[in-house]
């Protein structure tokens, strides 16, 4: 990763020296060597930190994932852990839930986008909304989870309110078909404030005269959004997509832990929670390493796909 850039520049310097020819003094050659080594020395701290704190543990983790647990501690088991993961319905649910999150992503981006649009278009009371919408973003997931747990309990206030309008109680966190949507919904509610701020920043770069022109031409609100705002905000929307997905895949542990503990029936497991559960609760560090490796590969694929998409979109601009 470092080699091509560094060596390329050093080679370039070398040829220039050689091309100069003539009385190549000792100081010049020493200078050339220093120049050749300088890039390596300069990147060394960064590379060392990356290698010792990131790559080496990663390699160790991958290595551990091919060893056994408990009595088999330290003995190679080949792909045993991965086969066990593939056969574990719990892990499959966790991966399926990752897929569900990716599918729900457009909704999670559309909500702050729409609300930011309304604020930008100065709906009555937009100043109040701007503050209110951002407020949940400053709460920790644990606090949000605890509050929502109380609200959504089977005999909690939400079900009581639903009862007064004649809708039967919903087991928000106890029904395996609903619980994952509940947790995701709460996560979106708790975090969309950040995306909203990013959208508002994007709006500030939007050319107001375009909006005025559209209005003068008699464009409806829908048409303004579709033909002026969305094209003007492509970059911002892409950025929000990427950050929201990362947020969903990496920071829902706290909410899951407090709200469902992976339940009911294991329906709200995410890979992260699965890894923690195997390592901390069931004492299976090697299996947890295997699950971490799978999660790493998933994140790698998702990340690369996003980079590709962004590049392609960037080229169109």
């Amino acid at each position: 990763m470092v080699r091509p850039a560094g060596s390329g520049r050093a080679d370039g310097a070398g040829t220039k020296q050689g091309g100069g020819g003539g009385p190549a003094t000792r100081t010049a050659s020493r200078g050339a060597r220093a120049e050749r080594l300088a890039p390596y020395v300069l990147v060394a701290p960064a590379v060392l930190i990356l290698v010792t704190l990131r790559l080496w543990p990663l390699v160790l983790g991958v290595n551990y994932s091919f060893t056994g647990d408990g009595a088999d501690n330290g003995t190679p088991v080949g792909l045993g852990n991965y086969l066990e993961l593939a056969g574990d319905p719990l892990f499959r649910t966790a991966l399926r839930n990752v897929g569900l999150l990716v599918l729900l992503l457009p909704v999670a981006v559309a909500i702050p986008g729409l609300l930011a649009t309304f604020i930008y278009l100065r709906v009555p009371g937009h100043r109040v909304y701007r503050g209110v919408y951002f407020f949940p973003a400053v709460l920790s997931p644990v606090i949000v989870g605890a509050i929502v747990n109380l609200m959504l309990g089977f005999d909690g206030p939400v079900n009581a309110a639903l009862g007064t309008v004649g809708v039967g109680p919903v087991d928000w966190l106890g029904d395996p078909g609903i619980a994952m949507f509940t947790v995701t919904g709460v996560h979106v509610w708790a975090t969309f404030g950040m995306a909203l701020v990013v959208f508002l920043a994007g709006f500030s770069t939007l050319d107001a005269s375009l909006l005025d022109a559209a209005r003068v031409d008699g464009a409806s609100l829908g048409q303004v959004v579709r033909h002026v705002i969305i094209p003007g905000l492509t970059r911002t929307i892409q950025f929000v997509f990427v950050t929201t997905l990362i947020g969903m895949l990496t920071s829902m542990f706290g909410l899951l832990f407090v709200m469902t503990s992976g339940g009911p029936e294991g329906s709200t497991y995410l890979p992260e929670y699965y890894i923690w559960h195997q390592q901390g609760q069931l004492n299976r560090p090697a299996l947890a390493s295997a699950a971490s490796t799978v999660l790493f590969v998933v994140m790698l694929v998702v990340g690369l796909a996003q980079i590709t998409l962004l590049r392609r979109a960037g080229r169109q601009d």
Partner: peptide, 13 residues
């Protein structure tokens, strides 16, 4: 290589 090696252990022996 990693599959074949599978050395070390996740928990310290």
């Amino acid at each position: 290589a990693l599959v074949l090696a599978g050395c070390g252990s996740a928990a310290r022996p």
